[in-house]
Amino acid sequence: MPLLETQGITVRFGGNTAVDNVSIGVEEGRITGLIGPNGAGKTTLFNTVTGLQRPAEGRILLDGADVTRLPPAKRARRGMARTFQRLELFLSLSVRDNIRVAGDILRSSTGSRVDVNRETERVLDQTGLRDIADLDVSDIPTGRARVVEVARALMTSPRVLLLDEPASGQTEQETEAFARMLGGLAAEGLAICLVEHDLPLVMKLCATIHVLDYGAVIASGTPKEIQESPEVIAAYIGTEEVTA
Rank of each mutant, 00 (worst) to 15 (best):
192 I>D: 01
157 S>V: 15
108 S>H: 09
203 M>V: 04
201 L>V: 04
190 L>Y: 06
195 V>N: 10
118 R>W: 11
130 R>Q: 15
115 D>E: 12
157 S>W: 14
140 I>D: 11
116 V>E: 03
150 V>T: 04
110 T>D: 12
142 T>I: 15
197 H>K: 08
121 E>W: 11
151 A>H: 07
109 S>Q: 15
209 I>D: 01
154 L>H: 07
138 S>F: 06
184 G>S: 12
150 V>E: 05
120 T>A: 05
141 P>F: 13
204 K>P: 00
167 A>F: 04
113 R>M: 08
176 E>M: 02
202 V>D: 05
136 D>V: 13
206 C>N: 05
157 S>Y: 15
207 A>M: 00
110 T>F: 10
202 V>N: 04
133 A>M: 08
200 P>F: 08
207 A>E: 15
155 M>A: 14
128 G>R: 03
146 R>P: 06
111 G>W: 05
202 V>H: 03
209 I>G: 04
106 L>P: 01
116 V>K: 09
181 M>T: 02
189 G>F: 12
107 R>M: 04
166 P>Q: 01
194 L>A: 10
180 R>Y: 07
110 T>E: 11
117 N>R: 15
114 V>R: 15
203 M>Q: 08
208 T>F: 01
132 I>G: 02
201 L>R: 05
172 E>K: 06
195 V>H: 06
191 A>D: 10
